[in-house]
């Protein structure tokens, strides 16, 4: 198999079924595909239990795949992991550190185990904002500080590829912003970042590309803008004095209109000026005409059908079974 030259991560047809001693089986990955190109900040999204962490664990050699092909930095995984590990920094879920060690000692031991120069320890501690707390024991750290330490451990190797599973877990708003800035800095420095997160707004701000997984299969992938544009229905929010009359005019003109309490939502609008013109000609003056652009959250919920219902609590497996969705943004 020949991988694209710029693919830092290439996954094709990845399958994994977890089996229990009692004969039970749960399909975690069902032919999952993903490509991360060099220099990307690539978001990896999916509902709980959709296979994100299993994918990352399989890629990093912690879980054995039943089938499929993977490569990291152009080398086959997991066979070549020992060779590429020095170039890959990773945190998977919330890594546990030894509570009795200080933050600095924790990183020193990892640096020693990985053959990394000891000078890197203080550099990465400063980079993640732990320089002044590096002498404290890890058990005294907050969840957010432990998360920063985890990111520091991943940065220790000066990686070409950084794989971060929920890096904003436990961080306060300031910490989330710092993490965002850090990822931008890393990306600007040429490091490829694959980040999984549930904070979709963050992903939208940080990432230039995204892959969405549901029930172990890819449901969308591509540049964030392209994924979002695939769900742009040309909708506009229209505020006008007489909503019922305006709705009648627009409906008669063949546009799908949804009436809300204080505004209309009009879909399939090719030219917003046409709405102003039509309503103005009938003496209705538009006070608001705003395009409704989809955000990543709405696209994600639509793709995975993970939006909660009005009264019935959604179960973790109540997500969409991927079908042949063509967003026109598949690689």
């Amino acid at each position: 198999m020949v991988w694209p030259m710029t693919a830092v991560i290439q996954i094709e047809g990845l399958r994994k079924t977890f089996r229990t001693f009692r004969g039970g089986a749960r399909v975690a990955l069902n032919g999952f595909d993903m490509t991360v190109e060099a220099g990307q900040v690539h978001g990896f999204l999916g509902p709980n239990g959709s296979g994100k962490t299993t994918t990352l664990r399989t890629l990093l050699g912690l879980v054995r795949a039943d089938d499929g092909h993977m490569s990291i930095l152009g080398q086959r995984a997991p066979e070549a992991l020992p060779a590429v590990a020095p170039r890959v920094g990773a945190i998977v879920e919330s890594p546990q550190f030894f509570g009795n060690f200080t933050g600095r000692r924790t990183l020193q031991l990892l640096a020693r185990a990985g053959g990394v120069p000891a000078e890197r320890v203080d550099a990465v501690l400063a980079q993640v904002g732990l320089r002044d707390r590096a002498g404290e024991r890890v058990k005294a750290y907050s969840l957010g500080m432990k998360q920063r330490l985890a990111v520091a451990s991943a940065l220790l190797k000066q990686p070409e590829l950084l794989i971060l599973d929920e890096p904003a877990n436990g961080l306060d708003p300031a910490g989330i912003r710092e993490m965002r800035d850090l990822m931008r800095e890393l990306s600007a420095a040429g490091i490829t970042v694959l980040v999984s997160s549930h904070i979709l707004a963050e992903i939208q701000l940080i990432c230039d590309h995204v892959t969405i997984i549901s029930r172990g299969q890819r449901v969308a992938t591509g540049p964030v803008a392209a994924v979002l544009s695939g769900f742009d229905k040309g909708e506009y929010r229209v505020r006008v004095g007489d909503l019922d009359r305006a709705a009648g005019v627009l409906t008669t003109a063949g546009l799908p209109v949804t009436r809300n309490d204080d505004h209309l939502v009009v879909a399939d609008v090719a030219d917003s000026a046409w709405i102003s013109e039509q309503l103005g000609q009938r003496g209705m003056w538009v006070t608001e005409l705003t395009p409704i652009t989809p955000d990543l959250e709405s696209v994600f919920l639509q793709l995975t059908a993970a939006a909660p219902g009005p009264s019935v609590p959604r179960q973790v497996d109540d997500v969409v079974q991927p079908g042949p969705i063509d967003l026109g943004v598949q690689p």
Binding site: V92, P95, Q96, F97, G114
Partner: peptide
């Protein structure tokens, strides 16, 4: 149990 082994294997996948 704690995940310490996992963390170590990310550094030394052997």
């Amino acid at each position: 149990t704690s995940g310490g082994m996992t963390n170590l294997l990310l550094w030394r996948p052997q």
